[in-house]
Measured scan of single mutants.
Amino acid sequence: MEVRTIKVFTTVDNINLHTQVVDMSMTYGQQFGPTYLDGADVTKIKPHNSHEGKTFYVLPNDDTLRVEAFEYYHTTDPSFLGRYMSALNHTKKWKYPQVNGLTSIKWADNNCYLATALLTLQQIELKFNPPALQDAYYRARAGEAANFCALILAYCNKTVGELGDVRETMSYLFQHANLDSCKRVLNVVCKTCGQQQTTLKGVEAVMYMGTLSYEQFKKGVQIPCTCGKQATKYLVQQESPFVMMSAPPAQYELKHGTFTCASEYTGNYQCGHYKHITSKETLYCIDGALLTKSSEYKGPITDVFYKENSYTTTIK
């Protein structure tokens, strides 16, 4: 009895394709271990004539594949690729409408935090270190965002349907971005203890939790000093293409032309909904596939993004 075979390709990165001759009487799992086709788990399936010449994702289970996976995804987590594939199996079914010149995501599976993050990423200057993220990001900007969303979920250790947080998501993504040249110098002034300067680099240099107003941050924000008295913390120097200011959701007025974009969060910790506000020729609110415009805006804002380049204080 002759062994019926077909020729397929296996890959971990969709760049390096490895030619395989597979036995049609055995499952993919018996031949390769966990195997995925377009995100779908085909591990328990036997090869079919229609699979001839198709590319299958496999887990990096030998040295060659491990090197290829690390170079593309910059992670050695053995569960990463499987999590990416199972997320992709959902995100490829989502709709990605162009809204006001940006790629958004039609609401499904509690994905409003991903839509808000995706919209924000198209408006701030950011370059990702893992080629996987950078490639998928370019495709997302062009309207094909399924891979990018699935990668975000995998890097953030999230599953489809789980509630997510924009600030946490951005923080994970910033860790995989090139923020080497970003720098922030802060000064804390206390009447009792004097003053202390701190220099922050990388992710810490672009994120701040405690106030939404970048102007206020430049002037000074009140913080408790270690001595128990009130101290003032203010920005001395900022070198970065953008800054992200966050605070627990509270009524906040966004003035046209003073910011790049913002995240609105309605609801409580267990259950809520994100919308995205962007400042173009007027203010726009993007909620999944829905767009509304207004000249002014007041609502429960939790993150505001500002364009920056270089700032030095005039406070002496």
Score class of each variant (00 low, 15 high):
Glu2Ser: 10
Val3Ile: 11
Thr5Leu: 11
Thr5Gly: 11
Ile6Asn: 02
Lys7Pro: 12
Phe9Tyr: 14
Val12Leu: 04
His18Tyr: 11
Asp23Asn: 12
Tyr28Met: 11
Phe32Gln: 11
Tyr36Ile: 04
Val42Phe: 13
Val42Lys: 07
Lys44Met: 13
Ile45Glu: 14
Lys46Leu: 13
His48Lys: 14
His48Gly: 11
Glu52Phe: 10
Glu52Lys: 12
Gly53Leu: 11
Phe56Met: 12
Phe56Gly: 05
Val58Ser: 06
Asp62Tyr: 05
Ala69Gln: 11
Ala69Trp: 04
Glu71Lys: 11
Tyr72Ala: 13
His74Gly: 09
Phe80Cys: 03
Arg83Cys: 08
Tyr84Ser: 05
Asn89Met: 15
Trp94Lys: 02
Lys95Val: 14
Gln98Tyr: 10
Gly101Asn: 11
Leu102Asp: 02
Thr103Gly: 01
Trp107Ser: 04
Asp109Gly: 05
Asn110Leu: 00
Tyr113Asn: 05
Thr116Trp: 03
Leu121Ser: 06
Leu126Ala: 06
Asn129Phe: 05
Pro131Gln: 00
Leu133Ile: 06
Glu144Thr: 07
Cys149Lys: 04
Ala150Gln: 08
Ala154Trp: 03
Thr159Tyr: 09
Gly161Ile: 04
Glu162Asn: 05
Arg167Thr: 05
Glu168Arg: 15
Thr169Trp: 03
Gln175Pro: 14
Gln175His: 09
Gln175Lys: 11
Ala177Leu: 06
Leu179Met: 06
Cys182Ala: 07
Arg184Cys: 07
Leu186Ser: 08
Leu186Cys: 11
Asn187Pro: 02
Val188Cys: 08
Val203Ser: 09
Val203Tyr: 15
Glu204Phe: 03
Val206Ile: 10
Tyr208Asp: 06
Met209Asn: 15
Gly210Glu: 03
Ser213Glu: 06
Gly220Trp: 00
Cys225Leu: 02
Gly228Trp: 01
Gly228Pro: 01
Lys229Glu: 15
Gln230Phe: 15
Ala231Met: 04
Thr232Gln: 07
Tyr234Trp: 05
Tyr234Ala: 05
Phe242Pro: 02
Val243Lys: 02
Gln251Ala: 09
Thr258Asn: 10
Thr258Ser: 12
Thr266Asp: 09
Cys271Trp: 15
His273Asn: 00
His276Tyr: 12
Glu281Arg: 05
Tyr284Ile: 15
Leu290Pro: 02
Thr292Phe: 13
Thr292Gln: 09
Tyr297Asn: 01
Thr302Ile: 00
Asp303Asn: 06
Phe305Arg: 01
Asn309Thr: 14
Tyr311His: 13
